[in-house]
Design a protein around this nucleic acid. Structure first.
Length: 568
RNA sequence: CGGGGCGUAGCGCAGCCCGGUUAGCGCGCCUGCUUUGGGAGCAGGAGGCCGCGGGUUCAAAUCCCGCCGCCCCGACCA
């Protein structure tokens, strides 16, 4: 393509709307433009990258034995009533009505639609397993769109759904899909982790996320050298060194004065103990019950786990007034000793070590030391309540895990029969008995992958594309387009390369060289052929964006060399 | 939805507190000349519902009220 007649609107300055590098660069390099918050146009170069990623995805899906289909975007709302997911989506589901006042949703994902297809068309065990996939735009009314195309209200996604007679078959395909996803991300040249994940509102039993590592990623993951990785929100807290406190003694606990000290730091410093020697007592309200949650002083509660345990998304902290009413003491001095019997006491597993506790005395400016569970109060239930952190032990090998940030580009789920049984999608087995399909589903964010790739591979000058997903293969840069010899040479290369199926951008704009070089760095096409003053000596330059290496080539043999370099 | 910030030419911004000529600057765009290996120079030019609506005032980009949009943090989240 010729730059002078292409829509590649590069920007010299950072757009006001963008904060993180990938978003800034996608706008500056002319890949995208915003229409509304979380709604973007993909301009020619942006679309070229999408097409390349899509073709990698198609190759891997086809190789994994999946078949491509195309499902509707417009979904009659009743199908979500049937699956019972309308509440799960809540306001995230885009709804609209047709001219007969029938309500439709814009497809946020397609479990319902595909399950209906399977119900009607895959009725025999003989035709199973099958896996169907599609690539299309999904709609989700995100509460807060963010970071350009990373969290958008509409985005391009590949989604696949598999149908099985039993769990073994699902496990097998699940592994094949995991391998396919690894292949896709590796072919895109990205560093990533596969992490154990929560299933969210998709539901199901087991799920894994594919995280492209990037400092600005929205997700936090703990990973270990042994290959294990887990989403922080799901990770269990396991200290590498078990807790060692003082030996429990037979005496009663003691009340100590801690004037004005409401924080763990203040109390531990004052009493000359480690923060982990204290026990934090957090008071919550769920439904009409008060709950006390006990965790080690140096740990934070994992809200997501609380919501799960109490099955209450609205669980909340008690207000200061409620705390005083319940405990008799002010905020900052709460403890489990002397709470009303109807207040259930939950404690994290980490407190199961029979330690002597230091806790609030439910009285202003007082704490209790030497408190023992069982003797002084009773814990009703232990559970995994705290957030894991960097340095916690790997559940597989026991070594400390490290924390990194990631962008979720893929998520695969073992759904089991969650959809098929609710939607009565069954097949007949060899005995003529009907069973609900065992299902898996597999999502991959194509538009998000672009941002993730840029987030991971850029420098202060612009994007650095991996060749497999770059919008074009080579950028021909004639330094002076009014020099006939230079332009003729550039055009000769353009034709020669295009004949070999290489995609070329020829910067034929009559601009100062500096402008063209800056723009070339910004676009980040893997190879750049500069044709300039050295042409008089019969040489051209081949520049590699990722390494900055320059190879000087004789004009006559350059084409061959370039084909070698691009060569697959 | 809570907190914060912003909205003036295609892009990035100043002006607003303290109301008063014809609303400015840089980049980009158009014309001409010069220039051509890392964001050129000179000369000329086009381009504005100052987010929208209302109010105060002789007079509003500027003050007041309401609304809308955008971004960031949080809550939320394939």
């Amino acid at each position: 393509m010729r730059w002078s007649r292409s829509c590649i609107p590069t920007l010299k300055e950072n757009p006001h709307e963008a904060e993180i590098p990938s978003h800034r660069l996608m706008v500056r390099a002319g890949l995208i433009r915003r229409l509304a918050s979380g709604v973007y146009t993909f301009l020619p170069l942006g679309l070229k990258t999408i097409v390349r990623i899509e073709s990698i995805v198609r190759e891997e899906m086809d190789a994994a034995g999946c078949q491509e289909v195309l499902m509707p975007i417009l979904h009659p709302i009743e199908i979500y009533e049937e699956s019972g997911r309308i509440e799960n989506f809540g306001s995230e589901l885009f709804k609209l009505t047709d001219n007969r006042e029938r309500t439709f949703a814009l497809g946020p994902t397609h479990e319902e639609v595909i399950t209906m297809i399977a119900r009607d068309e895959l009725r025999s065990y003989r035709s199973l397993p099958q896996c169907l996939y599609q690539i299309l735009i999904k709609f989700r009314d995100e509460i807060r769109p963010r970071y350009g195309v990373i969290r958008a209200k509409e985005f391009i996604m590949k989604d696949a759904y598999s149908f099985h007679t039993d769990d073994e078959s699902l496990d097998e395909v699940y592994r094949v899909m995991e391998r396919a996803y690894r292949n896709i991300i590796e072919r895109c040249g990205l560093e990533y982790r596969v992490v154990e994940a929560e299933s969210g509102y998709i539901g199901g039993n087991e799920s894994h996320e594919f995280m492209v590592l990037a400092g600005n990623g929205e997700d936090r993951i703990l990973s270990c050298d042994c290959g294990y990785a887990v989403n922080l929100e799901r990770a269990a807290a396991r200290p590498v060194e078990p807790y060692v406190g003082e030996e429990p003694c037979e005496e009663q606990y003691r009340e100590v004065e801690t004037p004005g000290m409401t924080s763990i730091d203040e109390v531990s410093t004052f009493l000359k103990v480690r923060p982990g020697d204290l026990v934090k007592t957090l008071l919550y309200r769920t439904g009409d019950r008060n709950i006390a949650v006990l965790v080690p002083g140096d740990r934070e509660v994992n809200d997501i786990k609380l919501v799960k345990i109490f099955d209450d998304p609205d669980i909340r902290f008690l207000e200061p007034g409620e705390i005083e009413e319940l405990t008799g003491g002010p905020v900052g001095f709460s403890g489990p000793v002397g709470l009303p019997v109807e207040t259930a006491i939950y404690a994290d597993m980490l407190l199961k070590d029979g330690r002597m506790m230091i806790i609030g005395a439910n009285r202003a400016d007082r704490h209790l030391t030497g408190v023992l569970e069982g003797r002084d109060f009773k814990i009703d239930q232990f559970g995994e309540l705290v957030r894991a952190r960097e340095g916690d032990a790997c559940p597989r090998c026991g070594k400390p895990m490290s924390m990194s940030n990631g962008i979720e580009v893929g998520h695969i789920f073992k759904l089991g029969t969650r959809y098929s049984s609710r939607m009565k999608a069954t097949f007949l087995d060899e005995n003529g008995e009907s069973h609900p399909f065992v299902m898996g589903c597999y999502g991959f964010g194509i538009s998000r992958l672009i941002a993730a790739a840029i987030e991971q591979h850029h420098d202060e000058n612009g994007i650095i594309w991996h060749p497999s997903i770059a919008p074009l293969d080579i950028h021909i840069l004639p330094v002076n387009v009014s020099d006939d010899e230079v332009m003729r040479t550039a055009e000769r290369f353009e034709t020669g390369l295009q004949e070999k199926g290489i995609e070329v951008l020829l910067d034929d704009r009559d601009l100062r060289p500096g402008v063209k070089f800056k723009d070339a760095d910004l676009l980040g096409i893997p190879l750049r052929l500069t044709i300039g003053k050295k042409l008089k000596e019969g040489r051209v330059e081949l520049f590699e964006r990722s390494t900055g290496e320059i190879e000087e080539l004789p004009v006559d043999t350059a084409l061959e060399r370039i084909l070698e370099r691009v060569g697959n």
